[in-house]
Simulated scan of single mutants.
Amino acid sequence: MLSLIAKALLSGALIVAIAEIGKRQPALAALVASLPLVSVLGMMLLWYSRPDAENMARHAEATFWYVLPSLPMFLLIPALLRQGVNFWVALLAGCALTVALYLAMTAIGPRFGLRL
């Protein structure tokens, strides 16, 4: 239980740090947010709990393929905001696009040999 609390606190601290940096330097906060810190931390914790090279390799590879469908969201949201769309609507549209692309990836990926 203590391990779970520590993981949650670390994750929360990372999110708060990005939000606080973003108040003063949006580009730096974006850089920090774009770093695969969560993925690296997740892999470290996964390795600690299950040190299996094949499992880790599958996890890292699937992470790569799942990052791709999330990227268009980061182009759609600023485009909508610049057109005057409300932030919450733009965010919802970006999230909806990402979900649709995730579903497409999981449906189409295996046809190309991706193990997701």
Score class of each variant (00 low, 15 high):
108 I>Y: 06
37 L>G: 02
45 L>G: 07
66 Y>A: 06
77 I>P: 08
87 F>D: 06
106 T>G: 11
11 S>F: 05
63 T>S: 12
81 L>I: 06
110 P>S: 11
25 Q>A: 10
68 L>N: 05
19 A>E: 01
112 F>M: 04
15 I>D: 00
60 A>G: 14
104 A>V: 13
51 P>C: 12
64 F>Q: 14
75 L>R: 08
74 F>C: 03
86 N>Q: 13
38 V>E: 01
16 V>F: 08
6 A>E: 09
83 Q>A: 14
19 A>D: 02
65 W>S: 01
79 A>P: 05
61 E>I: 13
52 D>F: 13
101 L>T: 09
64 F>H: 14
2 L>F: 08
96 A>K: 02
66 Y>L: 15
40 V>C: 08
25 Q>I: 08
111 R>D: 00
69 P>M: 07
13 A>T: 02
35 L>M: 13
102 Y>Q: 13
72 P>N: 09
99 V>P: 11
26 P>H: 07
109 G>R: 05
78 P>S: 09
52 D>T: 15
19 A>C: 02
116 L>H: 05
71 L>M: 15
82 R>I: 04
94 G>C: 05
95 C>N: 13
38 V>R: 04
11 S>H: 02
85 V>D: 02
92 L>D: 00
87 F>T: 04
10 L>M: 07
104 A>W: 10
89 V>S: 00
9 L>W: 06
5 I>D: 01
32 V>H: 09
21 I>G: 02
109 G>T: 10
103 L>E: 10
108 I>F: 07
43 M>T: 14
80 L>K: 07
110 P>Y: 09
18 I>N: 00
56 M>F: 08
43 M>L: 15
16 V>P: 03
25 Q>M: 05
17 A>E: 00
51 P>T: 11
97 L>G: 11
3 S>P: 00
38 V>H: 04
13 A>M: 00
116 L>R: 04
98 T>E: 08
95 C>H: 07
106 T>R: 15
90 A>T: 00
